[in-house]
Design a protein around this nucleic acid. Structure first.
Lengths: 387, 387
DNA sequence: CTACGCTCGGAAAGCGCTTACCCTTATTCT
DNA sequence: AGAATAAGGGTAAGCGCTTTCCGAGCGTAG
């Protein structure tokens, strides 16, 4: 932009060497000549706002206003010079510095039990999608379903001063003992106290009191399972075996309970329930155990999650029994593998990605109300129905 | 501070109001009641190092030295007071502030195509595991296999000034055109120039030159596929169809090429190859296409990844053909769903979690050399063999 | 023509930490 | 005993930004 044309503005720099001197882009490392140039050692530093301001011949304040959304207007001429300089230097604002200065970080911390599990993978994808839209960054931590580990992580996470914390399958979805979410309530409160928002999957009734916090993404586990139970009964099944996690694990309890309600309402009976956890192996061993106790042909097995149901299927097969016509199986979640197995798995579809996205919204949108997440029964080949 | 009482122990503060005055914890904002309770205002701020130092009656420097690993020794008495104060205030160092001050962030940025895909999920798990061990934090971004998006993300990522950047399945594993990694080489160079390390899955021969950067995690795609091809030929298969991504996609090319080499060496022929991408749907449509052109019974289908093979299986089934005895299928990766499908999928196991872990190590360990990642052919029911 | 009221740069005070330096004591050496 | 040397606490100068003020320049109303 030719200096002459710069009427209202006509920034000083254009006039001469005053505050700007020769140092145009090139700057930084090299030439030990320029006194304003930072050293050039071990590793050149990325361009700073200071560099941009210098090259553009404006003050730091102006450069900041131009580059990082500010209310204040900046004259076109100045704005242009700054943008040009930034571009030339390949300037990118230092996130940490911005965070310290603003007193607020752009981080959303996501806590999952196991990122390799498709259930969490989908949720994570949804969260990431939302974060990307808003230019926020998401950090992930893995609890490995270990409470101690979870607490340690939570503690460490505070250091990130995240804007929000999303708890997916932490013990937060337990409803036993305290009646409060697992996850060291005090830790969570600390998050909320200093202004961060905590969003958990599953109910988390108390933490944060009536205050601003206390948001949770609830998936209609009971309702979906009930519909499934009813549907299975309608298909003619009369006896079912449940495979779930330990009592007290909310998700598991809701699903098992809902299923039983629906199945019984439809005229069936839940013979017994085998406990384990959320992993595939657990589903397999629970099923093996059940088989050892004897399972009549025509029995239906309800796995509290697809992953568990998949494990059960492999156990049934390993025992030489037939999945479908002999022993029917159904699960919950509709992870992608469910439609790939053969016979394909009957399940309840849960919009996990959407759930993750909503969790994100719950974190960032001041006014937020959960959109219901539609669960849907999907009948496939693993429950062909009896006669 | 108080000259008098300062024998090495008995810190001044204990003595009285001098530099410390009344301001005990209570400080900051509200509730003048409980002295140890942090404030309660617009939003109380989390305790700062300054608070700790004040309460402990020491200088910021001392508090910092005690709490955040420093070379300098601090007398036991002081150390204790500081620790006590920190504990009482529930102090956690502000990561962003530390990052700005230290000029180095504790972030490892992970870029994946799709975190819901088990392939990336496992890698992510491995990376997270490593990061956790070292107390680093990992941020994730999703490229959705879109080059533009990837470039935008890369640009934004620079703002995090991450210690390292792990590229999983970016176009970085393309070998076409430039001969250099996809991912805007200039962006990557920028990362390395200022000291960050870039690690990519797949070769990335040039970026960063002979310098420090240029590390990559290579999976023996060609070798594994070749072994698989040989094995399949040994099982009696004579004709194979390949399903892969577009030409130029390194991973796909290597696998397809390796497979062909082994299969042919074993006496077989690769009839043709159908192109698509890495998604399940793509595998399904490629297979549908193949079926439309006619597929002899006894033919073997090689999917360039399990996910693709799984898609192919569903297409075969949808076409009313039988997987296994009629049309055999094999894949690559051994994602968990592969052992769940029925017939279970023959594939090449790749230690993905370990690969992720190694990628992490490659980022943080100055001296690093890749441990070979053993790939192993796993024959399952989808390739029962002919005759 | 003065009095205001705006608009918009710039100076500078932080944000929460780290760290090079300075300096007081305590120790050790000659 | 006196000097040299550790030890270890405190001071203060940053790190890279943001943001509050301040004030100069200009337009409009009285």
């Amino acid at each position: 932009m030719n200096p002459e044309s710069l009427s209202p503005a006509e920034p000083a720099a254009a006039t001469g060497a005053s505050s700007r001197a020769e140092p145009t882009a090139a700057t930084r490392d090299a030439a030990p000549t320029d006194p304003t140039t930072p050293p050039a050692s071990p590793f050149p530093h990325a361009a700073t706002l200071h560099d941009v301001a210098r090259d553009a011949g404006v003050s730091l304040a102006t450069a900041s206003r131009v580059l990082n959304g500010s209310e204040r207007k900046v004259a076109e001429a100045f704005r242009e010079r700054v943008e040009r300089a930034a571009e030339a230097l390949g300037y990118t604002p230092n996130m940490s510095a911005q965070a310290t200065a603003r007193g607020r970080s752009p981080i959303i911390a996501l806590l999952v039990a196991d990122i390799a599990d498709p259930y969490f993978g989908q949720i994570a994808a949804g969260v990431a999608r939302g974060a990307d839209e808003r230019g926020l960054v998401v950090t992930i931590s893995i609890t490995e379903r270990d409470q101690d580990r979870e607490n340690r992580i939570l503690r460490a996470l505070r250091g990130q001063r995240p804007q929000g914390l999303i708890l997916a399958a932490s013990r937060a979805d337990r409803s036993d003992d305290t009646g409060v979410a697992g996850s060291a309530p005090s830790e969570l409160e600390a998050f909320e106290r200093y202004g961060g928002r905590v969003v958990a999957f599953g109910d988390r009734p108390d933490v944060g009191g009536e205050g601003r916090g206390a948001r949770s993404i609830v998936i209609d586990n009971a309702g979906g399972a009930e519909a499934l139970g009813r549907r299975m009964a309608a298909l003619g099944y009369r006896t079912a075996i449940g495979i779930g996690a330990a009592e007290g694990v909310r998700t598991s309890d809701d699903r098992l309970g809902g299923f039983a309600r629906g199945f019984v309402a439809g005229g069936g009976t839940v013979a017994r329930i085998h406990r384990g956890d959320f992993r595939r192996e657990s589903g397999a061993s629970a099923m093996t155990e059940a088989l050892a106790e004897g399972v009549e042909p025509g029995t239906l097995v309800f796995g509290m999650s697809d992953v568990v149901a998949l494990g059960a299927i492999s156990a049934i097969r390993a025992a030489g029994r037939q999945v479908g016509t002999d022993i029917a199986v159904c699960g919950f979640d509709d992870v992608s593998a469910s439609s790939d197995v053969s016979p394909s798995l009957t399940t309840v579809r849960v919009p996990l990605n959407e759930a993750g996205y909503q969790a994100f919204r719950a974190v960032v949108d001041e006014d937020w109300t959960q959109d219901p997440l539609p669960v849907e029964v999907i009948v496939r080949d693993s429950t062909p129905g009896v006669a």
